[in-house]
Nucleic acid binder design. Structure first.
Lengths: 159, 159
DNA sequence: TATATGTTGACTTTTTTTGACCAAGGCGTA
DNA sequence: TACGCCTTGGTCAAAAAAAGTCAACATATA
């Protein structure tokens, strides 16, 4: 059984597919009605599935004739892509955040499944060595993970 | 006597066999119930039997409608290659040898160009940290390089 | 007997759903 | 123009439903 959030998120994705434009406009109230939920559920869907980190920008307006506009960010070229990716990894990244990022990048087709597997093996390797071999504190391991991830992503973006 | 962990692990493998898809989705709670154990036992099974090193990627979600998705990564043919690959990397490998090996693997179509690039970035990263950050002697760096490379290749070759 | 592997449960964190209350824009009317 | 009123969307917090972590304890294996 699939969550309502996923159903609504998938529906919005089909809107993009159907319109083959990089931007769609919708009414929060209508969507909530269509899926039989409270309006604020729509905000939750947008927050959790259509964030800038996931490649979307949102504009909205309240009042009569209000709307919600969802724009899909497309990377014009790899340079921009690289910068964006670099920003996604800050100066320190937890294991969980790294994993989430990898899932998102894989789902967006930026890395292949094989590449993700490879990266996860490598991150685990470094984590283990930092912990067991050098007894590094958690924060140091987070910054090292961020460094490694950044290097990997930057180099892949250029490839 | 067969441990519960083995029983559950085998069961998950049959799920893959039955569905002949490379990915299955399950509920931790349900599985724990089915085998009459605590939920965290499932985490142990996954950690010990379905790691990236063993060729699996796991994606999971907590909260309402949570799930655990296990993906089996299948790699380019090369069955006997797996053991062979491991032998290729001894207990210590120089930077040059590692590079030569990667070139050869790419030429034989066992890794893609991007994957080779990725691996080289990762090896360089580890080399630099070993040298600059921890002031490791050359031999130690060579063994660590071998360890990392072996892990990478074994996980990639895992069918 | 040591060490590695497996089992358990208490506690933590994350995700989803829901609803009450807040804020802003447009329109009609005094 | 100014003031309400209706229409929309936004925020926040609580509750519920999973899954994750960690460390203690147990069992198996070398």
């Amino acid at each position: 059984m699939s969550s309502l959030t996923k159903v609504i998120g998938d529906y919005i994705v089909t809107l993009f597919d159907d319109s083959d434009k990089s931007e769609i406009v919708l009414r929060r109230k209508d969507l909530a009605e269509k899926f039989g939920c409270v309006p604020s559920q729509i905000n939750y869907v947008l927050r959790s599935r259509f964030s800038p980190e996931q490649g979307f920008l949102i504009q909205s307006q309240r009042g009569g004739h209000g709307y919600i506009r969802i724009m899909q960010i497309r990377f014009a070229d790899c340079d921009e892509c690289a910068e964006h990716l670099e920003d996604l990894v800050g100066s320190a990244v937890s294991e969980q955040d790294a994993k989430r990022l990898m899932v998102s990048l894989q789902e967006r087709g930026i890395v292949t499944t094989r590449e993700r597997l490879l990266i996860e093996v490598v991150l685990r390797n470094q984590e283990e060595q930092g912990r067991v071999l050098f007894d590094l504190p958690p924060y140091k391991r987070d910054t090292m993970r961020a460094d490694l991830l950044r290097r990997i992503l930057v180099s892949l973006a250029m490839a």
